[in-house]
Design a protein around this nucleic acid. Structure first.
Length: 566
RNA sequence: GCCCUGGUGGUGUAGAGGAUAUCACGGGGGACUUCGGAUCCCCAAACCCGGGUUCAAAUCCCGGCCAGGGCCCCA
């Protein structure tokens, strides 16, 4: 039984006995250690019902609570109507350090939940490289996958490949007209051709017909489940772009389990079936084409299910994909840009109409450039490759400046890129500025990695000196030690909160705080110095070891490596 | 016009009913003869505006204002 539950149980017992009430109790964190470690504000709530001053209620309750000798609690105080609990750090520290020691990098891991999640993320159109907008999707998605897995879910990641859109037909036609620059990285070569064909079409609008024809032919072939010249051209183009994208993802330390092509749902007839089933609901209106009435779901806009020429539409294929995906898992999660909000709502509504589960959708706001939003079509974007390359280059310079081996530059550079995005809550719009992206002081990641490296070197030094770590903790702990211990304990809650709310920035911000707490501890509490008492030395060393473990685990969950020296 | 997000020191960001609003950068000042200075400490500096709900509001509600996004037989 942990201390928090002990406190809550004791409170419930006292309140039901003294006041004859069952109430929900939530423990709060105190603003600082002087006010204890945990607190409750129930007295304010009780004050109204009992018509009594909250201060007095608190004092009375404290007397009763003290008499109960709650295990792990050293002191209880009533302050201005709050009840503050002070925990017994010596005991607490000992237990916690032993737990971390025993579990190692599994400390904080959730129990296996036997729940299958399919998490779709990145899913950028294969008409060019990942730009820094897609990067936000990819990083949020990948961190989330790691966190959910660690929390105990069985997670499969999907990359949904949009191979049927107009933009792919443009690429295919573009390759016919202009070919591909074989010198360039494949996804960049595709983008170059894509920009050219867009410009060409602006100048030759009469050729628009050819694009429509390509789309028509591709879809016809798919509907008949045929392979012919056209499908080969599309597949070539898509795979060509995907090769490049996969290379970038690999550099980002991101791996998808499955790539699902939207065309597969036309091939297997599911898209047709979706339309048929939707017709059966009686909510389909036939105008020039089929429109779905979703007003029952509060959506006034009608959802168009197919083009007048009979070809399918992105959102209809998306319904088929979700129907299939959601039948294969317990929870489906999509990471999508905020521009998909309306369509996502429509897809959800359509799924409900069909009696299906609906996906959870995580929206993130766009990353824009100071001069405006990005556009692959206009060639106005910053690619992830570019950013990563620059970040690693900058990391190398920093290493050289400090006389550290360059081979850790990748870890530092990638860490900065990933962390810089992971730390921001997704609903916040971001503006990309090179100076900020490459300012390693501003990005908290090197700070965290440095704290880890520092742990490593202290542990190594201890080994040289023959000092062994042990959770003795038989002395009065300093406030820095207490803060650090509390942070290490909090890791479990952070994982839970981060996983359950599907918010990765919570973990990212926590790690920075942990590193901060560690540095404060390091600055104020001598560890291996000769004047330090042996038991203190051993205990503090254990604290270092535990911090290293948690930093390692946490950074790994953000897909960030931590070098042993830097 | 309608819908959805966001608005917190100079800048970027956390906090989503509770006590003195987090952290970083930038500015100013300081610390260190032993464990690694990508360090630590201190100072100045912020909740868009107006109402409301509450013992308690940055946080919830209503109304403004500002910014971004959406409202395609695009994806």
């Amino acid at each position: 039984m942990d201390i928090k539950s002990n406190i809550i149980n004791a409170l419930k017992e006292v309140i039901s006995k003294e006041i004859c009430k069952e109430i929900d109790i939530k423990l709060d964190k105190t603003p600082n250690l002087e006010l204890g470690d945990y607190s409750v504000n129930i007295c304010f709530r009780l004050a109204k019902e009992l018509k009594k001053n909250p201060k007095i209620i608190a004092e009375e309750l404290v007397d009763k609570l003290k008499a109960m000798n709650i295990e792990g609690v050293k002191e209880i105080k009533a302050v201005n109507g709050y009840i503050n609990f002070y925990i017994d750090y010596n005991k607490f520290a000992k237990n916690l350090m032993e737990e971390i020691d025993k579990k190692g990098n599994n400390y904080g891991r959730g129990d296996k939940k036997s729940i299958k999640i399919i998490l779709e993320h990145t899913s950028a159109n294969p008409n060019g490289p990942l730009h820094i907008g897609h990067l936000r999707n990819a990083i949020i998605g990948d961190c989330l996958k790691r966190i959910l897995e660690f929390y105990g879910y069985d997670v499969e990641t999907h990359y949904y490949v949009n191979d049927m859109g107009r933009q792919m037909a443009l690429v295919v036609y573009g390759i016919e007209l202009f070919g591909l620059d074989k010198e360039k990285k494949k996804d960049h070569a595709i983008a170059e051709t894509y920009v050219k064909i867009n410009k060409y079409l602006e100048e030759h609008p009469e050729e628009e017909e050819k694009i429509l024809e390509l789309m028509r032919k591709y879809e016809d072939a798919l509907e008949n489940n045929e392979d012919n010249e056209i499908t080969k051209k599309f597949e070539f183009a898509v795979n060509y772009a995907l090769d490049g994208i996969k290379e970038t993802l690999k550099n980002l330390n991101i791996k998808h389990d499955t790539f699902v092509w939207e065309s597969s749902y036309v091939r297997n007839g599911m898209v047709k079936k979706v339309i048929e089933k939707l017709m059966e609901t009686g909510k389909v209106i036939k105008e020039e084409t089929y429109m779905l009435d979703l007003s029952d779901f509060g959506i006034e806009k009608k959802m168009v299910l197919a083009r007048a020429n009979g070809t399918s539409l992105y959102s209809t294929r998306d319904i088929a994909y979700h129907l299939d995906k959601l039948s294969k898992c317990d929870i489906g999660i999509d990471v999508l840009g905020a521009d998909h909000k309306l369509t996502a709502e429509m897809v959800k509504a359509a799924l409900k109409l069909l009696g299906s589960k609906v996906p959870e959708v995580i929206f993130y706001e766009f990353i824009s450039l100071p001069e405006g939003s990005m556009s692959t079509r206009r060639g106005r974007f910053i690619s992830t490759d570019e950013l990563l390359e620059e970040a690693i280059k900058r990391a190398k310079e920093e290493c050289n400046k400090r006389g550290v081996e360059e081979n850790i530059a990748y870890d530092i550079g990638l860490g900065a890129v990933r962390y810089n995005i992971a730390r921001i809550s997704p609903e916040k719009p971001m503006v990309f500025r090179w100076e900020e992206a490459l300012d390693f002081e501003k990005v908290g990641c090197p700070f965290i990695q440095y704290a880890h490296a520092r742990c490593c070197s202290i542990l190594k030094e201890a080994e040289n000196k023959g000092v062994k770590d042990e959770a003795v903790f038989n002395y009065e702990l300093t406030s820095e030690e207490k803060e650090l211990i509390k942070m290490l304990d909090e890791f479990k809650d952070i994982i839970k909160e981060s996983a359950e709310s599907r918010r990765v920035h919570i973990l990212a911000n926590y790690l920075l705080e942990l590193a901060k707490a560690f540095n404060r501890f390091y600055a104020n509490c001598p560890i291996l110095m000769t004047k330090v008492d042996d038991d203190v030395k051993k205990s503090r060393l254990k604290l270092v070891k535990s911090t290293k473990t948690v930093l390692e685990t946490g950074l790994e969950l953000l897909g960030i490596n931590c070098p042993g020296r830097m």
